[in-house]
Design a protein around this nucleic acid. Structure first.
Ligand code: FES
Ligand code: FES
Lengths: 144, 144
DNA sequence: ATAATAAAGGATAATTTTGTCCTCTATTAA
DNA sequence: TTAATAGAGGACAAAATTATCCTTTATTAT
């Protein structure tokens, strides 16, 4: 469904978001150990997310990655997915036709659209605050 | 959502299925031109589908690919997807955790499961006959 | 039998994705 | 001002996916 980059990215963002509710910055090492992802690769992904402004970073001792608390309610999961995987998952044809539209649809278009809309809706209605709140229940995991 | 192999495979199967309702065998060349896919690559995909029994083939002049008419109502889209992409799309964790289950779910598990079930249900309830029937309406395309 | 047709299959290549390594830059504390 | 820490970024490497080429095998008509 998502690329590895996007999977790692979402897990990293959720981890950072959770820590940020307690004003805790987290280092790359902590992140990659906590979400069980390849460290250097995760660094690249976090670079994209900091460039796009959804994640903040600070260098040097006591530095690390964090998300501004006031942004947690406004950042949607779809924002992260868009940065890392683009929006072909929302707009692309499920059968790989070059353009997806109702005028020249593939035979599965109207069936795919429903599923795509479900996914889009789920990712757009869930903000980081909302997911982090769930994560207070300790049944949820970001690794293994 | 699907790999290129699976996209080409589904398009090829739908094309073959449509022709098979008129007892017409189709050659690789015809298929790849009709669905706008790389010919040699499509051949590999069709090999997998013939090995797995969903598609038939015959060599030599007047040969080509076809699907037994009586199988059209029983072959589901999910059968094709399983052959070409496996079933990780049905059972894998959306955030890439090694195992997806309700005991140690990722924070998006219960949201993902709904979407996965929608997709699974769509692919399992649509047989080749059903999709081919739609394809009689000439608004549907398999290329461009 | 022979030539033509068409799929099967092996080997290889190109491209994309995934992943690593090393140096540079910024920040902090001592 | 120096040493230590931590992200940024460039170069490179491995692996997986996508794609091509060529030979072999089977079938058909002549
Ligand atoms: S054209 Fe295929 S999903 Fe819209
Ligand atoms: S554990 Fe992530 S989707 Fe089930």
């Amino acid at each position: 469904m998502f690329s590895k980059s996007c999977e790692y990215g979402l897990r990293a963002v959720l981890f950072i978001a959770k820590q940020s509710t307690a004003d805790t910055k987290v280092s790359l090492t902590t992140i990659s150990e906590s979400i069980d992802s390849p460290q250097a690769f995760t660094a690249k992904i976090l670079q994209q997310l900091t460039k796009s402004g959804f994640v903040q970073s600070s260098k040097g001792p006591y530095g690390g990655f964090f998300i501004e608390k006031e942004n947690l309610p406004t950042i949607k999961l779809s924002d992260i997915v868009s940065v890392l995987d683009g929006d072909s998952i929302y707009t692309g044809c499920g059968l790989g036709l070059h353009q997806c539209n109702e005028k020249e649809p593939c035979p599965l278009h109207f069936k795919f659209v429903k599923i795509r809309e479900n996914l889009k809706n789920m990712l757009e209605t869930n903000t980081l605050s909302m997911v982090v709140k769930d994560m207070n229940s300790d049944i949820f995991h970001l690794k293994i």
